[in-house]
Design a protein around this nucleic acid. Structure first.
Lengths: 142, 142
DNA sequence: CGAAAAATGTTTTATATCATAACATTATAG
DNA sequence: CTATAATGTTATGATATAAAACATTTTTCG
């Protein structure tokens, strides 16, 4: 049998758990979990998307997205707006408070990401890692 | 805000989920989950280790390891033996049937891993990926 | 030696994550 | 206009993970 240390899936899982632990620790001051971070990031970058669209982008079942978005909305960071073109759907937008929060979030994220890049040995290695991971995800590299 | 596609932790998570989906699909014929695969691999490579030692290697809480090992033992693939040097602990060993199973497992795993290596672009890229992931896990690169 | 502390495996419990089914409302197709 | 599909939601079950408490056994050390 191959050694565990050479198995791609195993190494990926361990690295992902380790990085998420760093993330969770770094973001404990903002009480923000990775899923919430990713939702806020997408809303900040592309406001107005439908709930289902964001859920699908992130690989989250729309049923499970509801509670996630409830929490974000209850904290006053983002809001659902009824789209008048399609009154079934909710388009998602940051609140003014959410805009402020996202700026803080970006600073905390930079702290976290910089630490990871240092571990990797530089931005060049980061780019190489992203490229290799994209090849694994392929073909839908979003 | 940075695009999600450039965020290390996010890309890592997506790649890991994708690879695990491939793993689960490939191993459905053996009805084997990733955690069971890793336990059997370690027992095959280093028989006689204590339950706690294997659990810790894999980052599994020893409380959660119990049910995992129960399942493996009930399938007749491995067994707990009371160590006479320390009668608290159980040392883990494959059964003869487990030895046969592990050989089948290795063949199925090669099929899965080969597909991943092709996606990456070759063994060289695989090695590079493992190296980068190790840097993230650091310093305990097991 | 003998008592306190630690290690090992186990059970129980709580929490978080993820998938599935069913439903009401609204939009679209034919 | 009716049948079908899409959207958000609720409810439920399965799985993964973490923590606490316990019995048994070993180790520590006064």
């Amino acid at each position: 049998m191959p050694a565990m240390s050479t198995i791609i899936g195993y190494k990926l899982r361990r690295a992902q758990l380790h990085v998420f632990q760093d993330f969770i620790g770094t973001f404990s001051k903002l009480k923000l979990r990775p899923a919430e971070f990713s939702v806020l990031t997408i809303i900040a970058n592309t406001p107005g998307l439908k709930q289902s669209e964001i859920a699908e982008m992130l690989g989250i079942k729309r049923a499970n997205f509801v509670a996630l978005m409830d929490g974000i909305e209850k904290r006053g960071l983002a809001e659902r707006r009824k789209a008048d073109t399609d009154r079934r759907s909710h388009s998602l937008h940051l609140t003014p408070e959410g805009e402020k929060f996202v700026r803080k979030m970006a600073a905390v994220w930079a702290e976290h990401e910089t630490r990871l890049i240092e571990r990797l040995g530089g931005a060049r290695e980061r780019d190489r890692l992203i490229e290799l991971l994209d090849r694994l995800i392929e073909p839908a590299g979003q």
